[in-house]
Design a binder for these strands. Structure first.
Lengths: 190, 190
DNA sequence: CGCGCGATTGAGTAATTTCAAATCTAGTGG
DNA sequence: CCACTAGATTTGAAATTACTCAATCGCGCG
């Protein structure tokens, strides 16, 4: 467990340095959680009290449309943060499922605790500010990739940017992430 | 000019309250700029020293693909923030154009000045943190809309969420934002 | 008045989806 | 360890959708 906390601290200090006192204070606000494959962290219609930092494992966040088809907003793996941020930030009901694709471990952070540690520890306010900026930038890139690239190009980009992910995720889920049918993805000459 | 600064302060205080001293300090770090229709705030290949808060006017940020087609990442109007945040945050060359669709006025904020006011004024660090979160959430919604909705549904959503924008923007630019050809957009029965 | 830009419409083409079936694979229990 | 089964992947063919290329129409500005 020590090493898991250590990894979280390292992760935060990639962006904002912490004193030992700050770390002692803030680390108490995270809660360790463990989920089995196929368990849900978040379900549509429920409140979202926490966001999750992924210690290890793999999750998907997704919605289901009127035809029953699954659309994947995000995959999350080691060192990723995941939640339904719309529901979390605005304290409303979730419109997403978050489901474990593997047995996974997390540190969860409640909305209240996040505000507390941001208020008390300037470095954490800075961390989340920078992190949100980076997330915003990453999503802008994804939007642009949807506007400018074919599914084939997006798939090839995935292969090069997240090769480890590809091996852990069934192709039909990659299709649901890229926005094409699994048949079309299967027909791409890669 | 007084009222323009007042509007910026109001905008910030929708999220984070400021003391008069804090405002006096931080407002000095913004620079007023005015651009004519068709002028570029940012061009591909150039550095991006600033982000811009739009006092009034209208801009688009976009790229041009290999076929010469334009793809619009964002429209910005009154009270919006706009930049190439990837280039701005990482201090690299821009991959976007930002172009004025109308005569427009801005307050610009350099990267250095943003860090300064975030360091000195806790409320501003909080403001940008929350703002980045809201931006992240908005882009997640847009990703999901691309995955789950048809161009027709996305267009109808635009009509209801940003009716004023529609009237100021030619339809072919809306098509470039929604990710369909102008002919297809024109054929939608709305 | 005419020019240019934007919007619309038509027709043919290309790409993707859907539905169906066959094949392959990994995990389970015996 | 093997056989079995459910899920995943691939392939085929038809149907749908969107795109491209072209031509026309409409309107505002100079």
């Amino acid at each position: 467990m020590e090493d898991k906390y250590k990894r979280l601290r390292d992760h935060i200090e990639e962006i904002s340095d912490l004193t030992d006192e700050e770390w002692d204070f803030l680390s108490k606000h995270f809660k360790y959680k463990s989920f089995k494959k196929h368990q849900y962290l978040i379900q549509i219609g429920q409140t979202v009290p926490s966001e999750f930092w992924i210690i290890n494992g793999l999750v998907k966040s997704f919605t289901v449309d009127n035809d029953g088809k699954e659309h994947i907003l995000q995959f999350g793996m080691e060192d990723y943060w995941v939640s339904d941020y719309n529901a979390y930030q605005n304290q409303i009901k979730s419109t997403l499922h978050v489901d474990c694709l593997e047995d996974s471990e997390f540190f969860s952070l409640s909305f209240e605790n996040r505000e507390i540690i941001c208020q008390e520890v300037k470095a954490m306010a800075n961390f989340f500010r920078v992190k949100a900026n980076l997330g915003y930038i990453a999503l802008q890139k994804r939007i642009l990739s949807h506007l400018t690239e074919t599914a084939e190009e997006r798939y090839n980009n995935l292969l090069t940017t997240l090769p480890k992910l590809i091996q852990r995720v069934p192709k039909k889920l990659l299709a649901a992430y890229l926005g094409v049918s699994r048949e079309t993805l299967s027909r791409l000459k890669v």
